[in-house]
């Protein structure tokens, strides 16, 4: 289905994840973040760029791997993206819904 994000019609899944990463933009990210009450700051962007890089490399994400990234600690990750950090950060970053249980 399509969703109007930052003035563009963007194809999203039923859960609101972008269907096509090429449609992603920083404005779209900010708008999705705002739905969660998150205002994206410098630390958020660092995490978003990191998980996008991992996605492009085909590396599955987990809380453990985020903690080991050197970009953010697990505690900070939960503070930056409260209530489900991996899922929310992935949605904001425009990558598919994570499938990891850890």
């Amino acid at each position: 289905m399509d969703k109007l994000l930052a003035g563009n019609n963007v194809a999203v899944t039923e859960d609101g994840y972008l269907e096509d990463f090429n449609q992603w933009s920083k404005e779209i990210a900010s708008e999705i973040a705002a739905e969660y009450g998150i205002t994206l700051g410098e630390d958020h962007w660092k995490v978003i760029l990191y998980i996008q890089e991992q996605y492009e490399k085909g590396v599955p994400l987990s809380i453990r791997s985020i903690g080991k990234s050197g970009v953010v600690s697990i505690k900070e990750f939960y503070q930056l993206f409260p209530d489900g950090p991996l899922k929310r950060a992935s949605k904001i970053a425009g990558i598919p819904k994570p499938v990891s249980c850890i």
Partner: peptide, 16 residues
Amino acid sequence: LDIPPVGEFLEILSAS
């Protein structure tokens, strides 16, 4: 499967 050892897992749980 990237499942951490018990000690590291406890640290992750606490940090989470």
